[in-house]
């Protein structure tokens, strides 16, 4: 079995299995914990806070805007960029169609390429910030850097494969798929889980403060 076949087959399969089991394990391990009943008399029903919380924390409140806007913008640049590159690049859509039978229109290669470039730049900028800013340098740990690494490698290997730079296309493609496998394997163990947990966290705080008659 050559590298590409291995990457395409067993590697991705195993990675996907670990991703699924791990993600469920970690989500359920937390979401199934007990939560004490709140006996305080609510000022208003709490439920709406679960939704408001999702929206409210999408964008910094005005008093904080000047201090955090740069990192919000970089964050949005690469998150949206990742979505575009992952879900609107034709070969990816074909891959998904192959697996699940669904498909949707792709964006032109040039657009995806440009977005990929922007995404990479935003991620590099955030890494530089992480290393230079005294706050993020202090609070960062292995997870932060390794998560960055496993997010950036599929992007870089994918772009190299498209440009056919550095090695044979098949080798680059195999590396790309292996890096995706690595991302999937790491996903449940590190902070990539924020992609799920953010909903729970915002809903939790949103409800607590809605109940009190304020917002989070």
């Amino acid at each position: 079995m050559d590298l590409l076949t291995f990457a395409r087959g067993p590697a991705l399969q195993a990675a996907f299995t670990i991703f699924l089991i791990g993600t469920f394990w970690r989500l359920l391990g937390v979401l199934l914990l007990r939560r004490k009943l709140d006996h305080s008399e609510p000022r208003q029903p709490a439920l709406a806070g679960a939704f408001k919380g999702q929206i409210a924390h999408l964008w910094p409140y005005q008093p904080f805007a000047s201090r955090v806007m740069a990192s919000y913008l970089l964050g949005y640049a690469f998150h949206i960029g990742l979505v575009v590159v992952i879900f609107f690049y034709l070969p990816h859509i074909l891959f998904i169609q192959d697996l699940f039978g669904v498909s949707w229109p792709a964006l032109p290669h040039a657009v995806v390429n440009a977005v990929g470039g922007i995404t990479l730049m935003a991620l590099v900028a955030l890494l530089v910030k992480r290393l230079m800013n005294p706050v993020t340098r202090l609070i960062s740990n292995f997870d932060d850097y390794f998560t960055w690494f496993v997010t950036v490698t599929p992007l870089v290997t994918g772009m190299l494969a498209v440009a056919q730079v550095g090695a044979r296309y098949e080798t680059l493609l195999a590396l790309h798929l292996l890096s995706v496998a690595l991302l999937l394997i790491w996903f449940p163990f590190g902070k990539l889980m924020h992609a799920f947990f953010f909903v729970a966290a915002r809903a939790t705080t949103g409800m607590i403060f809605e109940r009190r008659g304020t917002h989070s």
Partner: peptide
């Protein structure tokens, strides 16, 4: 409980 655990799991170390 669940609340504290969710918080502990959700931080992205953004420093905001």
């Amino acid at each position: 409980g669940r609340v504290a655990a969710i918080y502990m799991e959700s931080c992205v170390h953004c420093g905001a």
